[in-house]
Amino acid sequence: MKNDAGVILVIGGAGFIGSHTVDLLLQEGYQVRVLDNFSTGRRENLPAGAPRLEVIAGSVEDSNWLEPAFDNVRAVLHLAAQVSVQRSVENPVYSCEQNIVGFVRVLEAARKQGARVVYASSAAVYGDPEILPLHEYGPIRPISPYGLEKYSNELYAELYGRMYGLSQLGLRYFNVYGPRQDPNSPYSGVISRFIDQLRRGVPLTVRGDGLQERDFIHVSDVARANLVALTKSVDGVVNVAGGQTCTILHLAEMLIAMNDRPAEIHWVPSVDGDIRRSQADISRMRKDLVDPIVSLEDGLRSVKQENGFPNEAIASSASHAFPS
Rank of each mutant, 00 (worst) to 15 (best):
R43S: 13
S270T: 12
G12H: 08
A321V: 08
S302P: 01
A157Y: 04
E306L: 12
T205L: 11
P139D: 11
L24I: 07
V125I: 15
L79S: 03
G273F: 09
T40S: 15
S167Y: 00
G114E: 09
K112Y: 09
S144T: 15
A57D: 13
V83N: 13
V10M: 05
T247S: 15
P51R: 12
V89H: 12
I217R: 03
C96G: 10
Y30W: 15
P139M: 07
A109I: 07
V106Y: 04
E306I: 00
F70Y: 13
V89N: 10
Q27F: 14
E130G: 15
M254G: 02
V83Y: 03
R199P: 00
N99M: 08
L9R: 06
S316E: 13
G161W: 03
R199M: 10
H78T: 05
G12W: 06
V60H: 00
Y94Q: 13
L296G: 05
G161Q: 13
A223I: 08
I275K: 10
A257M: 08
F309H: 01
G273H: 09
V240L: 05
L251W: 01
S84V: 06
V34S: 08
I293K: 14
G13R: 01
L300F: 00
L296E: 03
D209A: 09
G6I: 02
V85P: 03
D274L: 13
V55F: 06
Y160Q: 04
D291F: 00
R87Q: 14
P92T: 03
R214G: 03
D23H: 15
K304T: 08
Y160K: 07
L24Y: 09
V118Y: 05
L53I: 09
R193N: 05
E158A: 15
Q31V: 07
A313R: 12
G13V: 07
S319H: 15
E312K: 12
L159H: 10
R42Y: 07
S167T: 10
E130W: 02
K287A: 15
E149M: 11
R105M: 02
A80E: 01
Q181I: 05
N45L: 08
V206K: 01
A80L: 07
I314Y: 15
D36W: 02
A280E: 11
E67L: 14
D182C: 07
P139F: 09
V290F: 03
M163P: 00
M163A: 12
V234R: 00
L53R: 05
I100W: 03
L255I: 12
V176M: 00
D221G: 11
L255C: 10
E67S: 12
A225L: 06
R42Q: 14
G49Q: 11
S185I: 06
A69L: 10
E149Q: 14
G236N: 04
V93I: 14
V202Y: 06
A263F: 00
V93W: 11
I314R: 11
G49D: 08
N184V: 07
Y151P: 01
I195H: 04
V240G: 04
Q31C: 13
A57F: 05
A263E: 03
N175Y: 14
V125Q: 02
G165R: 05
R74A: 14
F16Q: 02
G208K: 05
E312D: 14
L230V: 09
A225W: 04
I8V: 15
E54N: 10
L26D: 09
G49R: 11
V294R: 07
P133E: 06
L204E: 01
Q244T: 13
G299M: 09
